[in-house]
Each structure stands twice: as structure tokens, then as C-alpha cells.
Design a protein around this nucleic acid. Structure first.
Lengths: 186, 186
DNA sequence: ATGGCTATGCGACAAATTGTCTCAGGTATA
DNA sequence: TATACCTGAGACAATTTGTCGCATAGCCAT
């Protein structure tokens, strides 16, 4: 738990980091402080919300997988508190399905870990249409395709693992194990 | 179920398919006609735009990779013509970056090929949050998805097993064995 | 509160699939 | 002919799945 910046009249823009990995929070916190932000950290959704209710941050970095809950709900809440908040979703378990959800919920951008502080900064600044997004030359590997597909069906089924396993005609234990692994890059 | 347009003289909702693969357009066109849409196809951005300017479609399916250009610009244009148009972006070269951009530009959803017609329908109806009417149409099993995907990449590479295995990041021996087996039913 | 139903996480072991290495052709091209 | 690809296939180890089982938790109706 980190102390909230009670006085928001700081000359630095406020930035809330929400990630259950404390080490990650610390490292990122330092890197962004150096870049001129006033950082606050939270490790759970509840903490993040109470901090945000006290003083809504101008920027937020939210991890998708917060222990048991999904950071997606937090994106929605933060945006309800202040539609002007710029939110970057960050995750080691990135998928197209969750990226789509995050953006629909109002996230400014969605990045896959590992990222460095500069990429995050760039993500905050980015607006639609300005960047020329390159279309990947190579199709997804079969492993990655499977991951994306699983994530999509899972999302469509409210993250219900049992239901998804049945739909996909795969053993629940197997699905469990696949989800526990990190997605392949590329 | 999707309701027919009130303004259009047709009793069926209009749907514009934009993909440079003519075969794909034809197949999809038939499948969606059967499901009660009034289909128009275009293979280039320019064609799509002039068609859309004449009569803006209620729904659109846009491929990301249109020969040289990016389907992303088309999403933007279609939305400018009519913000009510529901657009699903479809692609064989999916990536998180383009998915994020597509949604920001106003696409309703973003799907990686292969998909079947029912999944596209579901995508049109899908809104944020979750829990829509879980349409019984069960999606492909992972095995089936993989099979279709492999077949597509294989065809794109002139049936060269070695090349395909490399692209798919899988061992040639494994691909060999997968191909030796039958196409999965279901 | 109790039972019924379902979802979930995870250990353990067998069954199946993959990765790896190998060899033996086949085909094209310089 | 030498070189550089492709291909199918055998053998064996390394991994991944399928199948159990069990304990816990939430929800709902009795």
C-alpha cells in the first residue's frame, strides 16, 4: 500500500499505477517519477478505487490481471469518475480480445509486457489515426492463434473456464494449464 | 436478431463486404444472404467508398489488408459517412496494435480469420461488458480452427510444407503428422 | 442451515502428441 | 555433378493432454 497524494495541487501530473506485482510498481514508479509524474501505486482494485475517489488521477496504468479480478472493470470505473483520465492497460497476458474490450471501455492504449517507460509515455500521447500502424507481414503462429481464439471465446463467455472448455471441446484441466502460461510472442 | 432497415427499400439490412479475396467474398456473401442480409461486395477501398456514398450500409465487414492499403482508413471513412454503421474488422494478419486502432476508429469488433458467419453475426451484436444472448452456434473447436488455419497458410505458400512449418513456428515433422490426419469434424 | 449444482485450483499418473535426429530419396538449378 | 532445396518416415525422448480425484467457494431453493 502506498500513500495517496492528498494534495493534488502538485505541479506534476498525477499518475496512478495499479498492478499486483509490487516490484514492478516500484520500478515503474521510479522511472516515471523521473519523467515528471506524481506517482501513486495500488495493488488491488479496491485500493485503486478509493485512491481515485479521493483524487482522480490524470493518468493511470492498469494491469489486466489483478490477482483474481480483471483490471477491465477498473478501467470502466476510472472513466466513470473522470472521462478525461487517460488509461493505459498493461499486461503480460495480452490478447486481441481483451485489447478490444479495454479500448471499448475507454482505455487510451493497450500494451503487452514487457514494456519500458518510454513506450508507456508514447501510449499516453497517442491519438487515433496519427500513427501509421504497420500491418504485420507474417500471420500468427498456430500457438498464438490458439491463444487468441481461446481468449476470445473466454471473453465471450464471461471468463467462465468450464463453459469455454466445453465449447472448445477441450478438457478443463488443459484449458486451465494453457491459460496459466504466458502467450507466445509473435 | 438483426432488424431490417426502415429507410432502405429492401426489407433486409444492408451489409457491405470489403475484401480483396473474391472467393472469400463470395462464400461469405452467400452465407450472410442466407441469414437475411442484403449483401454488396467491394474489393478495393475506392469501390467500397463509392458504393457507400451512394447508399451507406448498415453493416460492414472490412478486411485489414486490402492489397496495398490498410482497411483502417476505410473504417474511419465509413464511420464519417454514417456513425451508426456497425463495422467488423476481419483479418488474417491480426495484431493487437491494429486491433486497438480499429476499435479507436470506431469498429464494432475485430476478429482474426478463420471465423465462420455465425461468429461475425455475434460480433455485430456484441457490445461492451459481456453476457449477450449466448447464441447456440458453437464456434469451431481449437482443433478445427488449427486445421483451417494451417490449410490457408499452406495454400498461400504453394503447399510447401517446410515453409509453412517455419511460418507457423512449428516443427516440420509435426506439421507433417497433422496433415496426415483427417480434417477434424465438428 | 442443508443439500444440490456449478465453477475453480491443483496434484498425480497414464496416454497421446511433439521435438529432435536421422536417413533416403526427389527435383531443380548453376 | 554439386548444391540446395523439398518430402516421407522411423525411433526415442521430452512435453503436453486426458482423466481422475478432492477440497473450496458461491448461489439458490428448500
Amino acid at each position: 500500500m502506498i500513500e495517496p497524494s492528498l494534495t493534488d495541487n502538485s505541479e506534476y501530473p498525477s499518475l496512478l499505477i495499479v498492478d499486483d506485482d509490487e516490484v514492478f510498481c516500484d520500478v515503474l514508479s521510479k522511472a516515471l517519477t523521473k519523467r515528471g509524474f506524481s506517482i501513486t501505486c495500488a495493488h488491488t482494485i479496491d485500493d485503486a478505487l478509493s485512491l481515485a475517489e479521493t483524487s482522480t488521477p490524470e493518468y493511470a496504468i492498469v494491469d489486466l490481471k489483478l490477482s483474481s479480478e480483471s483490471g477491465l472493470v477498473l478501467v470502466e470505473r476510472l472513466r466513470n469518475l473522470d472521462p478525461g483520465t487517460r488509461i493505459v492497460m498493461l499486461t503480460g497476458y495480452a490478447s486481441i480480445a481483451t485489447a478490444v474490450e479495454a479500448i471499448k471501455l475507454g482505455a487510451t492504449h493497450y500494451l503487452a509486457k514487457p514494456v519500458d517507460a518510454d513506450e508507456i509515455m508514447a501510449a499516453f500521447e497517442r491519438t487515433v489515426g496519427e500513427a501509421n500502424i504497420p500491418i504485420s507481414a507474417h500471420p500468427l503462429s498456430v500457438g498464438r492463434l490458439e491463444w487468441e481464439y481461446i481468449q476470445r471465446i473466454l471473453t465471450e463467455n464471461d471468463n467462465n473456464i468450464s463453459v469455454t472448455a466445453r465449447i472448445l471441446n477441450m478438457h478443463r484441466r488443459t484449458l486451465q494449464r494453457k491459460l496459466a502460461k504466458r502467450p507466445l510472442r509473435e
